[in-house]
């Protein structure tokens, strides 16, 4: 990663070879390809879902059709409000995928920024940030998110905010460690002796070298964020019943467990598949990018 660029064209081609070799490794693993297919499938659903089915389905309450078992007309049956579960699950892809991707992205950006500044500047800034992280780490994950969304009130946005507030800390701590290790390296001294500003040294030189493991961490986190979000909305801290997030669907179906098991099994299996896809992909990427695990 930190190869000195003495001969840039040669390292360039080496990097390209390395990249192609990594891709080859990635695609030769069947499980990873399977995971990618799942992720691709759900991403497509999230993007074009509202074109495939009527986006107003969550509002389409019809008590004459409630709790119908799966049939040709309703492939996954209908829920207690008479809405088609198939359509709701398709529309839900947008909620679950967007929340897990956004939470991971924002948490990673905030965490990387705080961790980098904390590790590079050191001293009192470092002390302050790391003590805040320590305090937030004192709460087991879901508990803090639960308390925050309880205080903020129930909505999709608040669910997102509470998850970000919980998740950024692990990135900050990890990034700080990375930057601390990088800070002592020769190229940082070189960049300082060239008279580059601290800002430029940190964000142009140290950050690109230290950020790499964060990407692995982030890909591996998407699945668990999705589960946490669904879990929080299952216990009633998610969006309203008219936003067909998958956890909310299971929550609504739970009272009808013995009468209409399709109400929980369909959205449940959907969450399982989606998070499995992301976890498979994350594992594959980690195995390829971490050279110690290659062989």
């Amino acid at each position: 990663m930190t190869s000195t660029n003495r001969n840039s064209s040669r390292t360039g081609s080496l990097k390209y070879k390395e990249f192609r070799y990594s891709l080859h490794l990635l695609f030769s693993n069947k499980l990873v390809v399977f995971g990618m297919c799942i992720v691709l499938f759900f991403s497509t659903l999230a993007i074009i879902g509202p074109l495939l089915v009527d986006p107003n389905e969550p509002m389409n309450v019809n008590f004459k059709n409630d709790l119908l078992p799966p049939s040709w007309e309703h492939p996954f049956g209908t829920d207690d409000l008479g809405r088609d579960v198939f359509k709701l699950v398709i529309l839900g892809a947008r909620y679950d995928l967007s929340i897990s991707l956004l939470v991971v992205a924002i948490a990673a950006i905030v965490g990387i920024f705080v961790g980098a500044v904390s590790g590079y500047v050191g001293g009192k800034v470092d002390e302050l940030f790391m003590r805040i992280v320590d305090i937030l780490f004192a709460f087991p994950g879901l508990i803090l998110a639960m308390a925050i969304s309880m205080v903020l009130g129930r909505s999709f946005l608040n669910l997102f905010l509470s998850l970000v507030l919980v998740w950024w800390t692990s990135y900050a701590r990890f990034m700080r460690g990375q930057v601390l290790a990088e800070r002592e390296k020769l190229y940082v001294k070189a960049s300082k002796s060239l008279g580059l500003s601290n800002f430029r040294t940190l964000f142009r030189h140290v950050l690109p070298n230290a950020v790499f493991p964060m990407i692995i961490l982030a890909t591996m986190d998407i699945g668990s964020v999705m589960l946490s979000a669904a879990g929080l909305s299952f216990i009633g801290l998610g969006p309203s019943p008219f936003e067909p997030e998958w956890g909310t669907l299971v929550n609504r179906g739970a009272p009808y467990l013995f009468m209409a098991p399709w109400l929980i099994s369909i959205p449940g299996v959907t969450i399982l598949l989606a998070s499995l896809g992301f976890n498979l992909m994350g594992d594959g990427i980690r195995d390829v990018l971490d050279p110690r695990l290659r062989r």
Binding site: G223, A230, G231, F234, V250, A254, L257, I271, S275, N279
Partner: peptide, 18 residues
């Protein structure tokens, strides 16, 4: 173990109950 970390707890609980 991959399935284990990907399974939604609430769905597993309800399915076991069923």
């Amino acid at each position: 173990s991959l399935v284990g970390i990907s399974i939604p707890v609430f769905w597993l609980g309800l399915s076991l109950q069923y």
